[in-house]
């Protein structure tokens, strides 16, 4: 549905977006990650046709956004950053206006407004003026505007920004559900959101794509991915370390926490180890040696760690070690 090819945007000398390429098909939810100022919003503004690209091309549903913007825009629903809305209008007035600009009229318009109000839980504020709404309601009003015409493509710039945890959860569920039938791109700072709603994620840093894969794949890039956490009682850290080092599957052991009752260690596998092999061998050792096992599990890796290791400049990484 969305195809982005070598998309580039320069503001003066500065390259805000530097030759990024990716595509999103129907049924996919693409998470757009990156630190502030990485070029997420600029990319989204180009994809939605708000700002023209310096170079590269964007096609939405087969229509080129630069050559043929109107039919391309018709397919898109867009929630800009900070959820702008006409503050002097009522919620229903604003949604009606958006529906009309989308070419809906009469009964179709009424149905569309009603549907969007229902999906975004706006029933209580229909006749309220937008400038009297709380941030959460305002955000959902703008979100409702983006889905008013049931678009095939949804571009959402930080859709959960400023919402409380319950609302975040609702919006995430909504995105995931709509993602079954649409092509969705959404940007966020919140990494659990990516795991909760995305089928694929892109990490963008200083205008370039630095990682692209499913949340699972990205997590596997973490250093601690595949390591085994072991917590046992009745043994000292040094002894545990020595015992574990005899296993052929173990590369190294790091004692994470130790007091007089228990030891917690992170055991890193040999690079050749197959999935689950390390956990099995550590378990067998623990049984043989009669450790008092309190916890034993394989770590999946953490997105935030991957995110940090990819997007922090080398110098900062050294300093925080």
């Amino acid at each position: 549905m969305i195809r982005v090819d070598n998309l580039t945007k320069a503001f003066g000398e500065k390259l805000a977006v530097n030759a990024i390429s990716f595509s999103v098909e129907r049924g996919e939810v693409l998470g757009f990650l990156g630190p502030n100022g990485a070029g997420k919003s600029t990319s989204m503004r180009m994809i939605t046709g708000f700002i023209p690209p310096t170079a590269g091309s964007i096609t939405v549903g087969g229509f080129d956004m630069v050559q043929n913007p109107i039919p391309a825009k018709r397919l898109i629903g867009y929630l800009p950053e900070n959820a702008p809305a006409y503050t002097d209008m009522t919620v229903s007035g604003f949604l009606g206006f958006s529906a009309e600009l989308r070419g809906l009229a009469g009964d179709a318009k009424k149905r569309a407004v009603h549907r969007a109000i229902e999906m975004c839980f706006l029933e209580g504020v229909i006749h309220q003026s937008i400038d009297t709404l709380s941030k959460g309601f305002r955000h959902r009003t703008c979100f409702a505007q983006s889905i008013i015409h049931d678009p095939d493509v949804l571009i959402l710039d930080e859709p959960t920004d400023g919402l409380d945890p319950n609302q975040k959860h609702e919006v995430r569920t909504l995105i995931k559900r709509m993602g079954e039938k649409k092509a969705i791109i959404f940007s966020t700072h919140i990494l659990e959101e990516v795991e909760a709603a995305c089928s694929r994620a892109i990490i963008i840093d200083r205008g370039q794509i630095v990682a692209n894969g499913t949340p699972q794949q990205l997590k596997h890039r973490s250093d601690i991915s595949g390591a085994v956490i072991l917590r046992v009682g009745g043994i000292s850290g040094a002894d545990l370390k020595q015992k574990l080092s005899q296993l052929p599957t173990v590369r190294k052991t790091v004692v994470v926490d130790e007091d007089k009752f228990r030891v917690q260690a992170r055991v890193f596998p040999q690079t050749s180890a197959v999935d689950g092999e390390l956990a099995r061998s550590v378990g067998e050792l623990a049984i043989r040696e009669k450790f008092q096992i309190e916890e034993l599990h394989t770590e999946e890796g953490r997105l935030d760690e991957v995110f940090r290791s990819i997007t922090l400049p080398e110098t900062v990484k050294e300093a925080t070690k």
Binding site: G49, P71, K73, L101
Partner: peptide, 14 residues
């Protein structure tokens, strides 16, 4: 100022 220009100009209108 409101940022609604971004909404308006990403609508399927010229």
């Amino acid at each position: 100022r409101l940022g609604t220009m971004e909404l308006l100009l990403t609508m399927p209108i010229a």
